[in-house]
Computed example of a mutant assay.
Amino acid sequence: MKEKTMNRARLTIALGLAALTAACGKKAETPVAAETNQAAPAATMSGDMGNMAMAPAARTAIKAKGHGTVTAIDKTAGTITLNHGPIPEANWPAMAMAFKAAPAITDAAKVGDKVDFDLTLTGNAGEVTAIHTQP
């Protein structure tokens, strides 16, 4: 009887390991979670992102526009953090988020500026490609 129980336990463990091994190479089929969003190199996102779904993770770039306020600039990292309104092209709600930006953009903006900006979204990464200060 004890041997039969041991064999069942071994079979259960073997089946569990086989299932785990089979699942190792598969990607999740659910929307990308906020923690994996690579547009923000640091923990700079805030707001209600519970139902945030990324734009299709295509390899082609998606152009988007936004409005917001500059909350931080890191010239060394080449990022600009914007507290922006919803961005429909990316299916993003309003939030604060860091984006890659060229030196010309980080040099042109100041913390506290209210801005209109253009984004290029590739997969899960975003880059500010133009920024215009609102009067």
Rank of each mutant, 00 (worst) to 15 (best):
Ala104Met: 12
Ala101Phe: 02
Thr106Tyr: 04
Gly85His: 11
Thr81Met: 13
Ile80Glu: 04
Lys110Met: 12
Ala104Arg: 11
Thr106Gly: 07
Ala96Gln: 13
Asp107Thr: 01
Asn91Val: 09
Asp107Glu: 13
Thr81Tyr: 10
Asn91His: 14
Pro93Ser: 11
Met97Ser: 06
Thr79His: 01
Val111Leu: 06
Lys75Leu: 06
Pro88Thr: 15
Phe99Glu: 04
Ala96Phe: 05
Ile87Cys: 01
Ala90Tyr: 12
Asp74Ser: 03
His84Gln: 05
Asp107Arg: 06
Asn83Tyr: 07
Gly78Asn: 03
Lys110Tyr: 14
Thr76Asn: 15
His84Asn: 07
Ala90Cys: 12
Ala77Phe: 08
Phe99Cys: 09
Asp74Asn: 14
Ala104Pro: 00
Ala102His: 09
Pro88Asn: 10
Met97Val: 11
Lys100Glu: 13
Ala104Lys: 14
Thr79Leu: 01
Ala98Pro: 00
Lys100Phe: 10
Lys110His: 15
Asn91Gln: 14
Met95Asp: 05
Thr106Pro: 05
Asp113Ser: 09
Ile80Trp: 04
Thr81Asp: 13
Ile80Ser: 04
Ala109Ile: 05
Thr81Gly: 12
Trp92Thr: 02
Ala98Trp: 07
Thr81Arg: 07
Ala102Thr: 15
Gly85Lys: 11
Met95Leu: 09
Pro93Leu: 07
Gly112Phe: 11
Trp92Asn: 00
Asp107Trp: 01
Ala108His: 00
Leu82Ala: 03
Leu82Asn: 03
Asp107Pro: 02
Ile80Gln: 01
Ala98Thr: 13
Asn91Leu: 12
Ala101Arg: 07
Pro86Thr: 15
Trp92Ala: 10
Ile80Arg: 00
Gly112Lys: 12
Pro93Thr: 13
Lys100Ser: 14
Ala94Asn: 08
Asn83Phe: 05
Ala102Phe: 13
Asn91Lys: 14
Gly78Lys: 04
Ala96Cys: 11
Leu82Trp: 04
Ile105Gly: 05
Gly112Pro: 08
Ala96Val: 02
Ala77Tyr: 07
Ala109Gln: 04
Ala96Lys: 11
Gly85Thr: 11
Ala90His: 06
Ile87Asp: 01
Thr76Cys: 09
Asp113Leu: 07
Ala109Gly: 11
Thr79Arg: 05
Lys75Phe: 06
Thr81Leu: 10
Pro88Asp: 11
Pro88Ala: 15
Met95Val: 00
Pro103Asn: 05
Ala108Ser: 15
Asp107Tyr: 04
Ile87Asn: 04
Lys100Ile: 00
Pro86Glu: 13
Ile105Thr: 09
Ala77His: 08
Leu82Asp: 04
Val111Arg: 04
Ala101Pro: 08
Ile87Gly: 01
Met97Trp: 10
Thr79Ala: 01
Asp107Gln: 14
Ala96Tyr: 00
Ala96Thr: 15
Ile87Pro: 04
Thr79Trp: 02
Asp74Glu: 01
Ala96Arg: 10
Pro86Cys: 10
Ala94Lys: 06
Asn83Val: 12
Ile105Val: 13
Gly78His: 06
Phe99Arg: 03
Ile105Gln: 00
Ala104Ile: 09
Thr76His: 12
Gly112Ala: 11
Ala94Leu: 07
Asp74Ile: 01
Pro86Ala: 13
Lys110Arg: 15
Ile87Lys: 01
Lys110Cys: 14
Ala90Val: 12
Ala77Pro: 12
Ala101Asn: 08
Val111Lys: 10
Leu82His: 02
